[in-house]
Amino acid sequence: MPMKLIGATASPYVRKVRVVLAEKKLDYQFVPENVWADDNRVADSNPLGKVPCLVMEGGEAVFDSRVIVEYLDTLSPVGQLIPAQGRARAAVKTWEALADGVVDAAVLARLEAVWAQRKDSERSQAWIERQLGKIDAGLQSMGQGLGDKPFCSGNALSLSDIAVGCALGWLEFRFPQIAWRGEYPNLGRLLDKLMLRPSFAATRPD
């Protein structure tokens, strides 16, 4: 029985895990779940009711995308995505934290704007603007950090690029009004290059 990944195809956090699974050539079963549906079963495996959630062969669950991808990188020697130690490891994990932070802010802004259980009079435009400011700052930092390098960390694909690519892809999916490609063409080139990889092409959010 292969590992099971519980998640939603639209989630950038789930996509990050799916890309890592593909790049590591690991076998798994994808179990789609909508965490907003009243009858979802996510809490059976993750008491927080969040995805992604990785259920291993013995039934033990691992959750939070950062924990999952770190675990997955140890399962196969194919294409190491996270350096084992030192400053190189810290650099990759910092890139991941930056990219995930952009997604976190984007998710909060979207929920404030569209969550059906909140009345329009209860929505805070100031809160939305605060989150959009974090997105702008994160994009600026990613653009400066990438510069003219082929990848975010070193000269080969790493978790840095996967996290950044998933963040950028989700912004294009949910926030097409943010014209980040015009301001940071290097990030656009990186995403376009990543989309040529089967792992990214097969996990485009929908």
Rank of each mutant, 00 (worst) to 15 (best):
T9G: 09
T9A: 13
A10C: 02
S11D: 01
V14S: 09
R15T: 08
K16N: 15
K16H: 10
V17W: 13
V20W: 11
V20H: 12
A22G: 15
E23K: 12
E23H: 13
E23F: 12
K25A: 15
D27V: 14
Y28T: 09
F30T: 09
P32E: 00
V35Y: 05
W36S: 14
A37K: 08
D39G: 10
D39T: 12
N40D: 05
N40W: 08
S45D: 09
N46V: 06
P47W: 03
P47K: 09
G49V: 12
G49Q: 12
K50N: 11
K50T: 14
V51D: 13
L54P: 04
L54V: 06
V55G: 08
M56D: 02
M56Q: 05
E57F: 06
E57D: 13
G59R: 13
G59N: 14
E60W: 05
A61R: 03
A61T: 04
A61V: 03
A61G: 10
V62E: 02
F63A: 09
D64F: 04
D64K: 02
R66I: 06
V67M: 00
V67C: 04
I68D: 02
I68W: 04
I68G: 02
V69Y: 03
E70W: 07
E70F: 05
Y71A: 08
Y71H: 13
T74L: 11
T74W: 04
L75R: 04
P77C: 00
P77G: 01
G79K: 03
G79I: 01
G79Y: 02
Q80K: 14
L81D: 01
I82S: 05
Q85E: 15
A88G: 07
R89V: 07
A90R: 03
A91H: 13
A91P: 05
V92F: 09
K93A: 09
K93C: 12
K93P: 07
T94C: 05
T94Q: 14
T94I: 05
T94L: 13
W95S: 03
W95H: 09
A97G: 02
A97P: 02
D100T: 00
V102I: 15
V103Y: 00
D104Q: 00
A105S: 15
A105I: 08
A106S: 14
A109C: 10
L111V: 08
L111S: 00
E112D: 14
E112K: 10
E112L: 09
A113Q: 10
A116G: 02
A116Q: 12
R118S: 01
R118C: 00
K119D: 15
K119A: 15
D120T: 07
D120K: 07
S121C: 11
S121I: 06
E122K: 03
E122P: 05
S124Q: 05
Q125N: 08
Q125Y: 03
W127S: 06
I128T: 04
I128P: 02
I128Q: 06
E129L: 04
R130Y: 08
K134Y: 07
K134S: 06
K134I: 00
I135D: 09
D136H: 13
A137N: 01
L139T: 03
L139G: 05
S141R: 11
S141Y: 08
G143W: 03
G143R: 04
Q144H: 05
Q144L: 07
G145L: 11
G145R: 04
G145V: 02
